[in-house]
Design a protein around this nucleic acid. Structure first.
Length: 788
DNA sequence: CTAGGGTTAG
């Protein structure tokens, strides 16, 4: 019954059955297990070749435990089973166990393949030095390297080599060993040259390869792409007789990375019409292209095409394709679509999580962003960066800074983008000292030439009231882009230097930088703050005529603001009437704000009606309206506006002011009783007021927007949050230091007046940043010329 | 039993 022939027949049958497990798929493991248990129940003990096959299938379907179990039962494992296991451990990332197994294998039974497997393990774990080290040991142990050895070691070398000289040295080793005519080895060598930036050398070697295979072509094409020589790559691709999908995919992704979206799409279309097989790599790149170019419709079409064409159901389909889809949808303002793709994915990785967090955060949906940030199983340095800059851009400065510090304590070195986020947080908070420290850290890390960090710093210094520092930084930037210019123009504008802002704009044009829609927003604001009505109108009219930028709603709003501040209501009304689209909330708010400052109650009421209609939940509209009535003494109307707001469940954002003292931000509310030093502050204010009065200060009680007794009104005035913050800073800052105070709403008119006299009494400069602009008080004057 | 090219997140 158990004759040798019979056993051989059974063994052969099992061997051919196991062959069915290749190529590996998700079904391979269960098939192997079935065959295995059949062997066990029928009393057949797999040995030698069959057992090794089982070990291999188990290892490759990521079931190392099964493989190891089988392996441990072998009394004297042969070199093939050992090689299989070493390779299994190293490809699962467990390089330590792999090496242990390697060391436990006696020299006498080792062979070249065994060394190759271990070297490959290091290469897969991106440890180039270990690759080379083991290669050296292999030579010391007197084993002959073969083609596999060279290609693998060269692969490891490509990671660590960064000088053409080192490439040449290895080139010589290869030639001496006689492998200089093996195509696969030469391909690897080309790749080493490419990776250290020597494309020219790489091309020379490529031309010398006698029998070029597919890999030779793709290596040189991708080599050009990696080194940003897209046109040279394209020339090669166009000249190839055989159309290699890999090379085409590399071209497409190269174009996408360089922002050459048209060419990427063009190649993708050609691929389709020429019948070159498109795979998940091509889909991924083109979806990413649509994401970056904002091509929602096309992206959606590709998505549908993939669903129709590919055999696998959508959630099972390639992870990178789904990741790219998540990004596509949120970039096209469809976060909820992105979320649906994300939820449907059966497998998610760090990239997927980062993509969905970015989506929420960029859409301003911070709550959901936070939730996913907390929920995600793993984070990397990009996760933190996305979260920090998202928080900063959405007004969560304090949380942004907290996260920046947390990131460092979790062991991640912040990159320039993370710094930019932290610096933006400082701009919002007015945390100048913290911002300066971040700047110093950037310099120490050698990151101060970064454009994104530099642009954030310009804004930070400007928004913290140090325009000069912003200017110095701007002037010394190695290569300023339009964002830098916009930031600097805005800086000058916010500080009331309207003329300089316009001069800088002209310099921008001379420097050959094209203005964009943001540039014109900052220009219009600058004109508005400085009262440059004629200039503002001129630039508004020229933006389309000279620069081809169609004014949007926000541009019209700023023009209206410009005219209203100057009291030119007729012209403002004409502008609104001439708008090519329905005016939105921003325009009505500008009109209302202007009417409130100039006491134009009739027009203001009209504007407020439209505004409240458009944004019933916006607190500012009701407050402006109510304040306008209060200033005009129409207390009943004022109270009604407040009541309307309450009835609709709208809550007014409480006014508050803050100031940074010794690296800490101190916040004050109106009539503050919470801050530990309020008593000292009130005492100090009581000492100052008589001196201010001697210089001509008269408390202006028309800024008390409540109908109360007039002597009580003065006390209400002196409890305004901005006065408390300024007084606190005067007490606590070093003698003579400039005071920089911040307020979330507009500064009160009486406070504005008071600070002028206060700056004279204490002999210091006081700078207040409110919701709209900066006020520099010195010697009884304000930089805004009372045009606030 | 061992090698080498193209994909995704700011």
């Amino acid at each position: 019954m158990t004759s040798p022939e019979f056993i051989r027949t059974v063994a052969n049958r099992y061997a051919s059955q196991l062959q069915l497990c290749y190529p590996l798929s998700s079904a391979s493991f269960s098939l192997a297990k079935t065959i295995h248990s059949h062997m066990v129940t029928s009393g057949f003990h797999p040995g030698g070749h069959i057992r090794n096959r089982l070990i291999d299938v188990y290892s490759k379907s990521s079931r190392i435990i099964y493989a190891r179990h089988l392996f441990d039962k072998i009394p004297e494992p042969d070199i093939v089973s050992r090689t299989t296991l070493v390779s299994a451990y190293s490809s699962s990332g467990d390089i330590k166990t792999a090496r242990k197994m390697f060391e436990e294998t006696p020299l006498s039974i080792r062979d070249t393949v065994f060394y190759n497997a271990m070297i490959t393990g290091y290469s897969r774990n991106e440890d180039g030095h270990a690759c080379i080290e083991l290669f050296r040991q292999m030579l010391r142990d007197e084993f002959r390297p073969d083609d596999f050895t060279f290609t693998t070691v060269l692969g490891g070398l490509a990671i660590v080599v960064n000088r053409a000289m080192q490439c040449k040295q290895f080139h010589c080793v290869v030639l001496k060993s006689g492998a200089g005519f093996v195509t696969s080895v030469l391909n690897a060598l080309v790749s080493v040259y490419v990776n250290c930036g020597s494309v020219f050398e790489a091309r020379k070697l490529f031309d010398e390869i006698k029998e070029k295979d597919e890999l030779s072509w793709t290596t040189i094409v991708t080599g050009y792409v990696k080194n940003d020589e897209l046109d040279a790559a394209r020339e090669l691709v166009d000249g190839m007789s055989e159309k290699l999908g890999v090379a085409w995919n590399a071209m497409i992704s190269g174009y996408v990375h360089r922002g050459r979206y048209e060419e990427a799409l063009d190649m993708f279309r050609k691929m389709y019409f020429m019948g070159i097989k498109m795979d998940e790599f091509a889909y991924t790149s083109i979806i990413s292209c649509c994401a970056h170019a904002g091509l929602f419709r096309l992206g959606k079409q590709v998505h549908c095409y993939v669903l129709r064409t590919e055999a696998k159901p959508a959630p099972e389909f390639s992870l990178p394709v789904n990741n790219a889809l998540v990004t596509l949808y949120w970039k096209c303002d469809k976060v909820d679509w992105a979320r649906r793709v994300f939820d449907n994915m059966s497998v998610k990785d760090l990239v997927s999580w980062n993509a969905i967090v970015s989506g929420y955060v960029n859409a301003g949906r911070i709550d959901e962003g936070r939730l996913f940030f907390r929920k995600m199983p793993k984070r990397n340095h990009l996760t933190w960066t996305v979260m920090i800059s998202g928080l900063a851009q959405n007004g969560f400065g304090e949380e942004g800074l907290k996260l920046f510090n947390l990131m460092k304590s979790e062991g991640f070195q912040p990159c320039d983008y993370a710094f930019a986020g932290a610096i933006t947080s400082c701009s919002m908070l007015g945390a100048l000292e913290t911002g300066r420290q971040l700047h110093a850290q950037l310099v120490r890390l050698g990151l101060d030439s970064s454009l994104s960090a530099g642009n954030a710093l310009i804004t930070m210094y400007a928004r913290c009231g140090v325009v000069e520092a912003a200017n110095v930084l701007f002037r010394t930037m190695p290569c300023a882009d339009s964002v830098s210019w916009n930031a600097m123009i805005a800086a000058l504008g916010q500080h009331g230097h309207g003329i300089q802002a316009l001069e800088l704009f002209e310099q921008m044009l001379d420097a050959g930088i094209s203005p964009d829609r943001i540039t014109f927003l900052t220009i219009l604001s600058a004109c508005s703050h400085a009262g440059l009505v004629k200039e503002g109108q001129y630039y508004f009219n020229s933006m389309h005529r000279l620069y081809g930028i169609t004014p949007g709603e926000d541009h019209y709003a700023r023009l209206v603001d410009l005219l209203c501040r100057a009291g030119k209501f007729l012209e403002a009304k004409d502008v609104i009437a001439s708008m090519p689209f329905e005016p939105g909330a921003a325009v009505w708010e500008a009109l209302l704000a202007g009417c409130r400052t100039h006491g134009n109650v009739d027009l203001g009421t009209q504007a407020a009606e439209r505004l409240i209609e458009l944004m019933p939940q916006h607190d500012g509209s009701y407050v402006l309206l109510s304040n306008m009535y209060a200033t005009a003494g129409r207390w009943n109307d004022a109270a009604n506006a407040r009541k309307l707001m309450r009835d609709r469940g709208v809550r007014k954002e409480p006014g508050c002011s803050w100031v940074e003292v010794e690296n800490k931000v101190h916040v004050f509310l109106v009539d503050d009783t919470v801050h530990p030093e309020v008593q000292a502050i009130y005492n100090y204010l009581n000492e100052l007021v008589p001196e201010m009065r001697r210089l001509g200060y008269v408390p202006d009680t028309k800024f008390v927007l409540q109908d109360i007794e007039s002597d009580h009104k003065e006390r209400v005035l002196s409890a305004h949050s901005e006065k408390l913050a300024v007084a606190f800073a005067l007490i606590r800052l070093p003698r003579g230091a400039t005071v920089r105070v911040f307020k979330n709403l507009r500064i009160c008119g009486d406070c504005h007046n008071a600070f002028k006299f206060m700056s004279k009494v204490v002999g210091r400069e006081i700078i207040v940043r409110d919701a709209k602009r900066f006020h520099h008080f010195r010697d009884c004057e304000c930089s805004c010329g009372d045009y606030w």
